[in-house]
């Protein structure tokens, strides 16, 4: 499980970086062409959609790294078993929310898969929408691995974190 999660994170992070680099390059193309008086109309759309992919992939990785901003007030006050139970509860909350996001995200993908991009009508909106269930799905996996760690420590009775 641990190795799988590590690999998944690496793939997702790489994907995010690639999309970040892509939209950076596309914007540079946009500026250059505009000042050369050439009209390129697809740059805004391609840059924006790559940006969305980059953000969602990054956000999922940040779930695994537990970097999303959290009030740790209660976390700092509690200790031992109570803290573990709270952590397990919080993992479950994230899992349930992401399952909902995954399912409703799939509904969106299904409903709007065949819509076209405006400037590049040969491309489908589905390629953009699918970033949501992919993000939610990976967030579920990351949270499950956190959950398993917390359950394990609860069983062993050791105090972690």
């Amino acid at each position: 499980m641990n190795r799988f999660i590590k690999m998944l994170e690496k793939i997702q992070l790489t994907l995010g970086i690639l999309f970040l680099s892509l939209f950076f390059i596309v914007i540079v193309i946009q500026i250059t062409t505009r000042h050369l008086g050439i009209s390129v109309i697809w740059t805004t759309e391609l840059a924006t959609y790559s940006f969305i992919w980059a953000v969602f992939m990054g956000a999922a990785v940040m779930v695994n790294r537990r970097e999303h901003f959290t009030f740790d007030y209660l976390q700092r006050k509690l200790k031992g078993k109570t803290l573990l139970i709270l952590n397990i509860f919080n993992d479950l909350v994230l899992i349930v929310f992401n399952i909902a996001l995954f399912i409703y995200g799939l509904e969106v993908v299904e409903g709007f898969w065949s819509y076209n991009w405006v400037a590049l009508p040969q491309l489908k909106m589905g390629y953009v929408w699918i970033s949501i269930p992919i993000m939610a799905g990976t967030m579920i996996l990351y949270s499950i691995s956190h959950l398993m760690k917390h359950v394990k420590s609860l069983k062993v009775g050791e105090v972690s974190e």
């Binding site: 970040l20 939209f23 950076f24 914007i27 805004t44 840059a47 924006t48 959609y49 940006f51 969305i52 980059a54 953000v55 909902a100 996001l101 409703y104 995200g105 509904e107 969106v108 409903g111 953009v128 929408w129 970033s131 949501i132 939610a136």
Partner: peptide, 26 residues
């Protein structure tokens, strides 16, 4: 409909000006 949540999450990011956020951080 509930699918408004994922839709709006994506639509909220679907704006060219927001691309400035990662670029200025970069």
């Amino acid at each position: 409909p509930e699918m408004t949540v994922p839709m709006k999450m994506l639509n909220g990011l679907d704006s060219f000006v927001l691309l400035a956020v990662p670029l200025f951080i970069l």
